[in-house]
């Protein structure tokens, strides 16, 4: 019943996430939170599917799934733009006085 391929991808991605995030310098934990927030809004992809593909057949007209999808698109879009722009703003504050990148955790 369970899809082995998806579980494999999921577990491998967890490992990648673990080792990548472990290397993030503690000073940048706040931008890390806001950028992960932005990328988790990638669920906009399926929300768009709901709107675009949702009721492609004319038979049933505009259904609930399109409306739900549209709401999800709106919320995720706020998050994507908000998250990336907020991260950029924070990072620009760190970057404006970089002299040398941190030597710890190399």
């Amino acid at each position: 019943m369970l899809n082995a391929e998806m579980i494999t991808i999921f577990i491998l991605a967890c490992f990648v996430g673990y080792y990548v995030v472990l290397k993030v310098t503690p000073a940048l934990h706040a931008p890390l939170m806001s950028v992960t927030n932005a990328i988790s809004s990638v669920i906009i992809v399926v929300a768009l599917d709901a709107v675009l593909v949702g009721l492609h057949d004319a038979e049933r007209g505009v259904g609930a799934s399109v409306w739900f999808g549209a709401f999800a698109v709106l919320l995720a879009a706020v998050n994507i733009v908000g998250g990336f722009m907020l991260t950029r703003r924070m990072l620009s504050m760190f970057a404006s006085k970089k002299k040398r990148s941190t030597e710890k955790r190399s």
Binding site: M6, I9, F10, I11, A13, C14, V16, G17, Y18, V20, V21, T36, N37, I39, S40, V42, I43, V45, V46
Partner: peptide, 10 residues
């Protein structure tokens, strides 16, 4: 979505 979800979750 599975990959991103796993990355953000971890």
């Amino acid at each position: 979505l599975i990959i991103v979800g796993a990355l953000v979750g971890t």
